[in-house]
Amino acid sequence: MTSRREVIQKLFKGAALAGTGGLIWSTATGKHKSEELVLRPPGAISKEKFLKACIKCGQCVDACPYDTLKLAQPEDKILIGTPYFTPRETPCYMCTNYPCTEVCPSGALDLKKLTRRETGTSIDHAEMGLAVVHRESCIAFWGIQCDACYRACPLMEKAIVLDFKKNTKTGKHANLQPVVMSDACTGCGACEHACVTEKAAIRVLPREIAIGEVGDHYIKSWEENDEERINNIQETGTEKDTDVETALDYLNKDEELFD
């Protein structure tokens, strides 16, 4: 027969062990939520859901004919066992039959993500990332003729276009500057793979990192109906707005200035 004291002691020990163990465990695991610069296979659902859903079976890696996809290993600082790719090593070659997305049993890669109502399911709808050009290290911006990324792009003239700018150094040549169109770029990374500079001047970043957001405070007055977005703005701070007097008076009160 164990005494009440012993039971309480045991409970306390158990709770302490589970608590500290759980804390170490969760800090070791939870950090993966903040991993930001990982590129996932085509059709991957939103980051947070992806980390929950992926069962880490590697069937997408198995299905990838180019060995583009890898499963994260402990040293990769990516949630272990989840698929990712590094375009500078091997880009996604955008198989038209998307074998990796199709084979996924868990729903972490979802064909719905590759499907649009108007155009159906296509690998061109993939949103693995968005290519971003660093102008200063891109030799095309220097004026040296290079269109490696433009030629490598599987959606040439849609995802990457060349902007012809006058070369002011010579006065008679053109700079063929690559420009990424974010609505068409899939983030396959063929451009990053092809880039001739030592460290790629064009890089694929996860879309949520690369893409900005205007919000509803600015509108395009020259576009019909764009003004309606203003209605999305939620009214804030109405209570303070009515308190005009203190706003006007606060500079007049010396005691608040010298306290």
Partner: peptide
């Protein structure tokens, strides 16, 4: 822990 951190804890 899986419920708290929102990731399969042991699989990680």
């Amino acid at each position: 822990l899986s419920a708290i951190i929102g990731i399969s804890a042991f699989e990680a």
